[in-house]
């Protein structure tokens, strides 16, 4: 379908990628400043992803911070074989899954955000964009299906890229998306 993830990502901006790679190398060599730039560059991506997956601010911020910490601890283990952003995605998705293992949290928040009340402050109304019925339904899908759907559609990545992030085969991504469609048939 598409080329390698790296090529795909590279098309978004070779410059940015080169800078990221350089920062990664420097950070791996212990350059704290480089690491700082690196997470500053990626914080928005992490936060946005966490938000889309969870649909509320508290969890998104918790996850984003967790991911920053994990990056700090694990950057030396990043092997450069995939794009750095894929790696970050992967860690973020793992953090989401961990957080939501606490089923109580999951139920509480997804209910709390199911409706956006009109009296919500303007700032919070942005949340409406990711709080519709469809979003709710997608967030409640089994982890793999949810990850596949959100990566492919909400994040607009190729199946190959999603496959790399999820650590599965490309065909399996398509399968999960298909399964998700089946699961949500009543709703869609």
């Amino acid at each position: 379908m598409h080329g390698l993830m790296e090529r795909d990502a590279a098309s978004q901006g070779d410059m940015a990628n080169a800078v990221t790679r350089a920062l990664v190398v420097r950070a791996q060599n212990g350059d704290a400043q480089a690491f700082g730039e690196l997470i500053a560059d990626h914080y928005d991506l992490i936060h946005r992803t966490a938000w889309k997956w969870c649909g509320n601010r508290t969890d998104a911020e918790d996850i984003a911070q967790d991911v920053c910490v994990k990056l700090g601890q694990a950057i030396a283990q990043f092997d450069g074989r995939s794009a750095f952003s894929s790696w970050v995605y992967r860690i973020t998705l793992n953090a989401v899954r961990d957080l939501q293992r606490s089923t109580v949290r999951r139920a509480r928040h997804s209910d709390a955000y199911a409706e956006v009340a009109p009296e919500k402050q303007a700032a919070e109304q942005e949340e409406a964009a990711t709080s519709g019925q469809l979003w709710q339904a997608v967030r409640r899908l089994p982890d793999k299906q949810r990850d596949a759907v959100l990566l492919v559609y909400a994040e607009d990545l190729s199946h190959a890229a999603a496959a790399e992030i999820m650590g599965i085969k490309e065909a399996t991504v398509s399968f999960h998306v298909h399964e998700a469609r089946k699961t949500l048939r009543g709703l869609l």
Partner: peptide, 9 residues
């Protein structure tokens, strides 16, 4: 978050 990340790093 960034501060926490730096600390961990």
């Amino acid at each position: 978050a960034l501060a926490a990340g730096m600390a961990a790093f």
